[in-house]
Amino acid sequence: MGNDDITLRQLQSEVDDWIQTIGVRYFSELTNLAILMEEVGELSRLMARKYGDQSFKSGESADNIPSEIGDILFVLTCLANQMGISLQDVIQSTIKKNTKRDLDRHKNNPKL
């Protein structure tokens, strides 16, 4: 990792510190879920225009895709913090689950 890289645990801590000092408090879990869906929708709109069949409206560009991904990660981190979920633990668990389930599945997929 480079000097600016942070771990998932550090990410959760930094987001929590930001919420406590600048954000005042966490929004409710349901509000944050709605915000997460909104942010995913914003990413979807840009992706549909860059990689799909839609065209950009005047003033729109794909340059905002990284920002939208950052917004999604921020809100997802808020939700994990609120529910006491370790992002490090869940991603490791998900990788193990996917590895066990898909060990040969994709290698044997003629579509790939």
Rank of each mutant, 00 (worst) to 15 (best):
D17C: 05
K100M: 08
T94P: 07
V24G: 08
E42G: 00
N98Q: 12
S13H: 11
Q92E: 15
I6D: 06
G2V: 06
S86F: 02
G84D: 06
D17T: 13
Q54W: 09
R101D: 12
N98W: 11
I22S: 12
I95F: 06
H106V: 14
M37C: 08
S58M: 07
I72N: 00
C78H: 05
N109R: 03
T99A: 03
M83K: 09
L30W: 13
D16L: 06
E29Y: 14
L112A: 09
Q54T: 13
Y51K: 06
Y26M: 00
S28M: 02
E68L: 01
S55G: 07
D89G: 03
E42H: 00
S28Q: 02
K96N: 12
D63E: 09
Q10F: 07
Q88D: 14
S55Y: 10
L103Q: 14
N3L: 12
E14D: 15
L33E: 15
I91H: 09
D104S: 12
T99P: 00
L112I: 15
I85D: 10
F74D: 10
G23D: 04
I85S: 04
T77L: 01
L46S: 02
F27E: 12
P110R: 02
V40P: 01
R25D: 14
A34I: 13
I95S: 08
L11M: 10
E38D: 03
E29T: 14
G84T: 13
I35E: 14
L73P: 05
D4T: 14
Q88G: 04
M83Q: 15
R101S: 11
G41P: 02
A62V: 10
S28W: 01
D53H: 06
